[in-house]
Design a protein around this nucleic acid. Structure first.
Lengths: 192, 192
DNA sequence: CACCTCATCTTGACACCGTCAGGATCATGG
DNA sequence: CCATGATCCTGACGGTGTCAAGATGAGGTG
């Protein structure tokens, strides 16, 4: 649609896109609803009709974040061998990929209480992400405890790398870094 | 000192204490400097003289957070066997203890960009915490890569548990939970 | 085609926030 | 005893989220 008319046409999508830019540039803690509206070329109260309040907008963004989180993992898995073990490692590498490619979204989804995590859509998206990991662990012959172990390892690596800590790994060339990550991930799963 | 006089006497400490309460009750993202001043029974501009701005106050709080982080680990280590391996696991358990006992401080220190991490005192405190972990890994016969592995595992467990994810482990009774955590931590270190 | 209804968007107001400037208060040392 | 400086307060400014009320226009109904 044109951005000419009084009625925007697809303001909801435009606001979501603007919100992601805002989030990426300013971070979760300096996120401003009025600034998002300004980016979308719309009045400061316009977002309210589509998302209720700032929390609602960030909740919708978090849903999109989870979606992209899974997509990033799938991309890694498609490049890996078919056996469950390799798929599990690929999922872990995708976990890290997401944190490094979209650090602001990563923060929003995993280290923020601004989104409403009781929202049905967000719950669903989060459960989907967890289910994917649990399925992979199960396929590789693991149980709940192994799921926790793999998840924690992947999450720890991703969070520390995205935060700029773990310079030991961050300064490595990509392939060396990936193999180091794979080694750590593999180790977290028993019976290797 | 009395809270009677015009000059507070120890306002800096009082503000730090009030800031921690504020942080615990409202979280990093809803932290308000004026509210902290109100808690301390002082005008809204009083904190500026001691901490410069809100960032300065949160930076000072983060330093205290790192201090308490190390203290929590030391408490676990004192209860563990003397051998390096057991000490390393104890440090990991202390990592988790801290995240669960002071989730807001944990967020401030590890998942926020509000403190000024270029501040000398905060850098020092962070380096101290890292050095402690690195020393433990070295004592147990590990190198930089092992440090990264152990750190990521402990951090992932702590962060996910503090965020209320990982219900598998969170619902376990304390001793069972600790032994499960110890198993995951041990696994992250090679040659067990 | 004319009209009406309702979703959509704007304007304006309010309370709260962080920060700065300037004034009030008090402790301390010459 | 008084002056100086550290400490704290008051008041103001721009920015933020949210609510109420009004303007706009799209789509269905007569």
């Amino acid at each position: 649609m044109e951005d000419r008319s009084y009625h925007h046409g697809d303001l909801r999508a435009a606001l979501l896109a603007a919100a992601e830019v805002e989030l990426t540039e300013k971070g979760v803690e300096a996120f401003s609803l009025r600034s998002v509206a300004k980016r979308a070329g719309v009045s400061h109260a316009a977002p309210a009709h589509h998302f209720g309040d700032a929390r609602g907008l960030l909740t919708a963004l978090a849903v999109e974040g989870f979606r992209r989180f899974l997509a990033t993992q799938h991309r890694r898995e498609a490049l890996a061998a078919a056996d469950p073990r390799a798929q599990l490692v690929a999922a872990g590498l995708g976990y890290v990929d997401f944190a490094l490619a979209y650090p602001a979204l990563f923060r929003l989804v995993f280290s923020s209480d601004r989104p409403d995590f009781t929202d049905p859509a967000l719950c669903q998206a989060g459960d989907d992400a967890y289910a994917h990991l649990a399925d992979q662990v199960t396929a590789a012959g693991g149980g709940p405890l192994e799921t926790a172990a793999v998840w924690a390892t992947a999450h720890g690596l991703a969070d520390l790398l995205a935060a700029g800590r773990l310079k030991t790994l961050a300064t490595l060339p990509p392939e060396a870094r990936d193999s180091a990550l794979a080694a750590v991930l593999t180790r977290s799963f028993p019976g290797s």
